[in-house]
Simulated assay, not measured.
Amino acid sequence: MRLIVLSHFVWLLFFNATVFAEIKGEGIDYTANGTTLKGYLAYDDAIKGQRPGILVVHEWWGHNEYARKRARMLAELGYVALAVDMYGDGKTAAHPKQAGEFAQALLNNMETAQNRFIAALELIKKQQSVDATKIAAIGYCLGGGIVLTMARNGVDLAGVASFHGSLTTKEPAKPGKVKAKVLVFHGEADEFVTAEQVKAFQAEMKNAQVDLELVTYPGVKHSFTNPEADNLAKKFDLPLAYNEAADKDSWAKLQVFFKQIFANFSASKNK
């Protein structure tokens, strides 16, 4: 009888440990040149040891729930993800005019943008659960353009992935400077990125000998990964549209990309 009770007690301990092991998400403040940046760190506390870290760079709306959601989705895949704050003080825009102003102010000072990105990079590298040699970055809309710029500038990343991001640049990539493998997802009906810009980007990456994979989706508009795109399009008369098929396909291809650049990583759950 005592053996049965003891076995039941051990089973309860195991059960409770399993139940309470879950995706954790927490706000985390950091700074760059005196500006407070408000990030969001997501991870699975049931995974043993160190794992790759992924930076998530937000759309032009700012660090909002969508960026945090993507960070949690990455945590579910076994990574540690940090949704970064590129605007400072956690600023978010409620209107496209304000979003445009925030984005333009950042893009007009790429030194500040890079300092903020590097601050986030150093923060995620310092996490005990992160393998500092295995870091990548993904970005949406504005964030897609940011991660591509960081790759062009030679920031030490294993890979970057851009979803419906800007492809243009004032300073094209130079041969030998880009360390990251590059993955780009683009909707062919995106009115913010022209076919000419796509061709120029491909030529730039080829000239710079960058390892590029470009995935395009016919008939797909800007912001195709964000389920809120349709509401935003209607509310503000913007050429945006969510596309479930492209969203799912791009997320699946991102996972393959990560398996390629983080070849030796395998998530191991505590048992």
Rank of each mutant, 00 (worst) to 15 (best):
L3D: 09
L3M: 02
H8W: 09
W11R: 08
L13H: 07
F14Y: 13
F15T: 11
F15E: 12
A17F: 09
I23E: 06
K24S: 10
E26C: 07
E26W: 06
T31G: 03
A32Y: 07
G34V: 12
L37W: 12
K38T: 15
K38H: 14
G39D: 10
Y43G: 13
Y43I: 13
Y43T: 13
D45R: 05
I47L: 15
Q50H: 04
Q50T: 10
Q50R: 09
R51K: 06
P52Q: 03
G53V: 02
L55Q: 01
V56T: 01
G62Q: 01
G62V: 08
H63F: 05
R68E: 15
R68Q: 15
V80L: 10
L82R: 00
L82A: 07
A83D: 03
D85S: 02
M86S: 09
D89C: 00
P96N: 08
F102N: 02
L106T: 01
N108C: 12
N109S: 14
I124P: 02
K125G: 04
K126Y: 11
Q128M: 12
V130Y: 04
D131A: 05
A136G: 12
A137W: 00
I138V: 07
G139Y: 01
Y140H: 07
L142W: 03
G143L: 02
V147M: 05
M150P: 00
R152H: 11
V155S: 10
D156M: 09
A158R: 02
S162H: 12
S162A: 15
F163G: 00
L167H: 09
T169P: 12
A173V: 13
K174Y: 09
K177L: 15
L183K: 06
L183W: 11
F185P: 00
H186K: 13
G187N: 11
E188I: 11
F192A: 05
F192H: 07
V193I: 15
A195F: 03
Q197V: 06
N207S: 08
L212Y: 11
L212S: 02
L212W: 08
T216E: 09
S223W: 04
F224I: 03
T225S: 06
N226R: 01
P227N: 10
E228S: 12
A229F: 04
N231M: 12
A233C: 09
L238C: 05
Y242K: 00
N243T: 12
E244F: 04
A252F: 04
K253D: 05
N264A: 13
F265H: 11
S268H: 14
K271A: 14
